[in-house]
Design a protein around this nucleic acid. Structure first.
Length: 553
RNA sequence: GCGCCAAUAGCUCAACAGGACAGAGCACAAGCCUUCUAAGCUUGGGGUUGGGGGUUCGAGUCCCUCUUGGCGCGCCA
């Protein structure tokens, strides 16, 4: 939209000036100002360059303004302020064009400026919980983050593929099989004994019940394990879909193994001398990359591959499928993976920036003021389904938790207070945003406004939108594409939730200060168009978050 | 012991690859509905951004150090 166009124009000017001063890596930024008194857009380039050019920032800023052409085409005022900020006040015409672009039918935030964004294909892996139990609340956080980030990246015109990696091979799955078998014995009234490191949760009993007709005394553990995984994954899929998160593919480790992909990788690594043997086990020389602190075992001395080997094969497979970036969201207890996996990718000649591992910090569940310790093995779990049940298991419950998780940065641990969350369904921040949308719909339903709804935006309407509370709304609208771009770059959708709160806030303030109905026709028209624009952006943002967009509340 | 992540108002969190006076919500106090939804708005109190150094025009943000909390450090996944 218009905001991108304006920024590209400025960026070009700054770039030209940078090159003529021999500045090749320019770290200056163009930002929206925090306060209207500084204009609308601001650049810090004069301050950033001052040192290497050997001039004081203010003097440099004056030179730059002289140098730049056609500023008046976009800006009504360009000033130097503070330590050397160059501030740009947008011309009314530009505000009008912005409104026009938002209100137009084929309105889009897609960024068409190749200098600001290379279009890429992203592989997003998130949640990837083990298929040995139901999804818990930590998975819920990952699900929302990954899902909304995917939506944002798509809006920015990137190709996005979301994947859930199912670790359905190895020891843990065998343990699951044993645990199910023992529970089955229990159901048959036979003596049973679940191993200490087995799975003790009550869901195992449910799985055993479901499978009871298929199990007999000569069924193998592997078979039971396979069936159990199927049941649990089915359950996980249902829950996650209910939670409005969709994966393009559920990738099974067993599939990789059936095609002997991990052996293929191992052989390649051996041929290239990256593997050595010690005490009967095979080690990968991850340390030679400088990215890992010690070499890692890939095949144990009894001949079975560790989880690491298929993991390498999986990430290589992502690369071979042609993605430009693989973003991998992991739980905080996996941070050890970063070093070894980056090292493995390097050994396989995959570009350094291909794999980007992000940690999602943990979720502490608090109930009645106490932390609920969760562990699949001990059986004390609060599942995602439990959580939804506690909150009422309806659309509102999903809205609440999705928005709650989106409000926090992924890099910080968070406390989820169950008792509070239940109460907050009445006074939740998500409602604040939704309420703004419902309020606008309510205004637009008024019969007096019917004749205005379909009218075209006219350039002069912008003159009617100059009160402080109204101008603040316009400034917020201008910010939206900046917000999306920032979220995409940071690989964190957190900023979107914050933005929606702010947009709702400026609207609510506008609402209490100004009335749409009963004004001079040109004023009513301008305000109708304004709230239509706000409605459009709110709906767009909420749909990226996959939160209900209510017409009435 | 080594490593990773964090610490911002009474509580939960913001602050956009260092930027202009650190902002919201909840809670607390006082107000605003005979006119478009009061799930809203207005006003107020509340902070040495865990402590201490440093880097620079400028630090919550970067570096060092200390304190506190969480998590890792297996031929488990």
């Amino acid at each position: 939209m218009q905001a991108n166009k304006i920024r590209s124009f400025l960026r070009e000017q700054i770039k030209t000036s940078a090159i003529s001063r021999n500045i090749h890596t320019d770290t200056s930024t163009i930002e929206l100002t925090k306060d209207e008194k500084f204009g609308d857009l601001t650049s810090n380039c004069a301050m950033v360059w001052a040192k290497s050019v050997g001039k004081n920032p203010i003097q440099l800023a004056q030179e730059l303004i002289q140098e730049w052409k056609n500023l008046s085409e976009y800006f009504s005022e360009v000033t130097i302020a503070g330590a050397g900020f160059i501030n740009f006040k947008l011309d009314l015409e530009q505000w009008s064009l912005m409104m026009e672009s938002i209100l137009s039918d084929h309105f889009s935030f897609k960024i068409n400026d190749p200098s600001t964004s290379e279009l890429s294909s992203y592989h997003l892996e998130f949640v990837s919980a083990n298929p040995t139990g139901p999804l818990n609340v930590v998975s819920a956080r990952a699900a929302v983050i990954g899902d909304v980030l995917a939506n944002i990246l798509k809006t920015l015109n990137h190709q996005v593929h979301c994947e859930f990696y199912v670790n359905d091979a190895g020891n843990q799955v065998k343990l699951l099989g044993i645990s199910v078998l023992e529970r089955w014995k229990e159901l048959q009234g036979l003596p049973f004994q679940i191993p200490d490191d087995g799975y003790h949760g009550s869901y195992v009993i449910e799985v055993a019940k479901t499978l009871s007709s298929r199990i007999s005394s000569d069924t193998t553990i592997d078979q039971i394990a396979e069936w159990a995984v199927q049941e649990i994954v089915k359950e996980q899929k249902q829950t996650i879909e209910k939670y409005r998160t969709h994966f393009d593919r559920w990738f099974f480790e067993s599939e990789l193994r059936r095609n002997r992909k991990e052996i293929e990788v191992l052989e390649w690594l051996q041929q290239n001398n990256y593997i050595y043997e010690s005490e009967g086990a095979l080690y990968l020389k991850t340390t030679i990359t400088g990215l890992d602190e010690k070499d890692r075992v890939v095949v144990t001395s009894n001949g079975t591959p560790t989880y690491f080997l298929p993991d390498i094969a999986y990430h290589l497979d992502k690369y071979r499928r042609g993605f430009r970036y693989a973003i991998n969201f992991l739980g905080p207890d996996h941070h050890g993976v970063i070093g070894r996996m980056s090292a493995a990718m390097k050994l396989l000649n995959v570009p350094d920036d291909f794999l980007q591992i992000r940690l999602i910090q943990q979720v502490n569940l608090i109930r009645n003021g106490e932390i609920v310790k969760m562990s699949k093995r001990s059986g004390e779990i609060v599942t995602l389904q439990d959580l939804l049940n506690e909150l009422g298991d309806n659309d509102a419950a999903v809205d609440v938790t999705r928005f709650f998780f989106l409000q926090r940065k992924v890099s910080t641990p968070l406390d989820f207070d169950l008792t509070l969350a239940k109460k907050q369904t009445e006074e939740n921040p998500a409602y604040y945003v939704q309420y703004a949308h419902a309020r606008i719909c309510s205004i637009l339903r008024q019969p007096e406004l019917e004749s205005y709804l379909g009218s075209q935006w006219t350039k002069t309407s912008i003159n009617e939108l100059q009160e402080p509370e109204t101008k603040r709304v316009l400034r917020k609208l201008l910010e939206y594409p900046f917000v999306l771009e920032r979220c995409g770059q940071a690989l964190d959708p957190n900023g979107l939730a914050t933005y929606l709160m702010e947009l709702a806030a400026v609207f609510h303030k506008f609402y209490t200060h100004h009335r749409v109905i009963g004004q001079a026709p040109k004023v009513t028209l301008a305000r109708v168009k304004l709230i239509q624009a706000v409605k459009k952006i709110l709906a767009h943002g909420l749909s990226l978050c996959r939160i209900t967009i209510p017409e009435r509340m």
